[in-house]
Structure formats: C-alpha cells, structure tokens
C-alpha cells in the first residue's frame, strides 16, 4: 500500500507539474507595459512555490513507503515529540519565503495601482451595464459631459444608454463606442463605472482587471505596447448574461486612433 501511495502521489505531482513547466495552457502574450514584470513575477512564484510543492509531495510519498509497517517484530516507531530547532528553522524559512516574495512584487503593484495616470494619458470612460460595455471619449474639449441615471435607457444604445445629458455643452462632442479603440504606446486612463450591479473589466492580454462598482468612478491605467485586437470580458458575476458580456480592445497606431476619433466625431454632425 505504501508503494502504491508513493507511485500515485509522485505520478500526480509529476504530471501536474509537467503542464505548468511546459506552459501547455498559459497566459496570453502580454500586450501592455506591465505584462513583462507581472509575467516575471509569475515565473518566480512558480519556481519557488513549485519547488515547495514538489518536495513536499515527493517526501510524503517517500515517507509513506519507507516508513510502512513491516510487520510484527520489525523496528518500532521512533519515539519523539519533535525537534524545536527544526521547527524554528522552517518557521523562519517560510516567513522569509512568503514575505520576501510579497515584497518583491511591491514595485509592480505600486506603479500599477498606487500611482495615478500621468497627465498626458488618453482618457476613456468605461461603463458597464447588464450586459454590455460602452466606451466614451471626451472629444476635442477634453471634458466628459455629465450623465444622469434618470436619463439612462439601455434600449436606445450609445448616448441614451449612458444617460448623457444633452443640455450639458461638454457632452456635445463626446464619442461613444461599443469597441474600445486605443492608441499604442500611450498611457490609457480608464474611468470605470457601472449602472446597475458590479461588473469587472478584464483584458487578459493587458494583464488588467478592475471591478466596476455602481456609485464609484474608479480611475486606473495601463499602457498597450502592441497593436492588435484583444478580447475583454466581464470578470464579476453580474446576472444571467454574464457569460456573454465581452468586447474588443482595439490597439491601433496613434495616427489611426486620431483618424478613428475624428471620423466618429464627424458622424455625429
């Protein structure tokens, strides 16, 4: 029985680890400035935690086999209540490992979340509602027009869905889109809002996720570094249509972005 345990535990450990080491299923290619650092921290964590995992499982299987009851008359179990020195040692090692790992990730967290977007960032307001995403650009005046909950009507789409107040002059040039178009290599400041329940704005390729909370306007930022279409999806249970609440982040060159924005502006006239 000990041998079976050893074989099964070792096999599970090795097969389980194989798919991680081989990266059979892995994070998508990173397309934002922060992706490299985050992915690096993933790797470091995997190496450290993976080693602990493999060693512990190997030891468990090994002990189960090595110290099996070999029948009457064999060596009795070793009578010991433990070893204080060993315990102190592995307590200290674990503290160093866990806290050290955490501290190592602090600079990334700090640049992603503790610091706001730089003043020149492109602002996009992201509004979530059951079960759609809307993206709003302030237009030439650089000001988002005010919105009012009592004006919201999802069936109208666009400005109507957001409840844009047409009496506010700064709302005249606001561009509203169902696709998020952003320029490459520019910092994007997203302003995350929700009308009804909590949603979450998740773009795996950007290594970006943030809940959108009704009643709050959450300011966050990321910098795309690669053009292309990246899928986004809702990552907080929001109701029966949660599974189909997805969209596209289109990263284009700076010039294409300006052209796109101008074209949308022209459509409004």
């Amino acid at each position: 029985m000990g041998l079976v345990l050893l074989v099964v535990i070792w096999l599970i450990t090795l097969i389980g680890s194989y798919f991680i080491i081989a990266k059979t299923w892995w994070l998508p290619v990173g397309a934002s400035a922060a992706a490299a650092a985050i992915d690096h921290h993933f790797t470091v964590s995997y190496i450290l935690m993976g080693s602990v995992f493999i060693l512990a499982q190997l030891a468990l299987g090994w002990f189960a086999w090595k110290y099996r009851d070999r029948g009457a008359g064999s060596q009795p179990a070793h009578y010991s209540h433990g070893n204080t020195k060993l315990e102190v040692l592995w307590t200290i090692l674990t503290i160093i490992l866990f806290v050290g790992l955490n501290l190592a990730s602090e600079p990334i967290w700090s640049s992603e979340r503790l610091h706001g977007a730089s003043p020149g960032a492109v602002q996009v307001e992201v509004t979530a509602m059951q079960f759609a995403w809307y993206f709003r650009y302030a237009g030439p005046d650089g000001k988002f027009g005010s919105t009012k909950p009592e004006l919201e009507d999802a069936s109208l789409g666009g400005a109507g869905a957001l409840g844009l107040d047409s009496n506010d002059p700064s709302s005249k040039d606001d561009v509203i889109s169902g696709v998020m178009v952003v320029p490459v290599n520019r910092e994007i400041e997203v302003i995350l809002r929700s009308h009804d329940v909590i949603h979450s704005f998740f773009v795996p390729a950007m290594r970006f996720k943030q809940d959108t909370v009704p009643g709050l306007a959450i300011h966050m930022h990321f910098t795309p570094i690669q053009t292309g279409d990246y899928e986004l999806a809702c990552a907080e249970l929001c109701g029966l249509g949660h599974y189909k609440m997805h969209g596209i982040v289109k990263v284009v060159s700076d010039q294409e972005f300006s052209q796109w924005l101008a074209a949308r502006e022209a459509e409004k006239q």
């Binding site: 002990f63 315990e87 592995w90």
Partner: peptide, 18 residues
C-alpha cells in the same frame, strides 16, 4: 506550512498502518 512540515515529521520514522 508549519503544520505541513509537522505532518511529514510525524510520518518520518513511523511505523505506518495503511
């Protein structure tokens, strides 16, 4: 983690009945 190590420590040099 301490608990895990102690569980392994308990098996170590035991006389395990499965």
């Amino acid at each position: 983690a301490i608990k895990t190590f102690n569980w392994l420590g308990t098996l170590w040099r035991g006389k395990i009945r499965f």
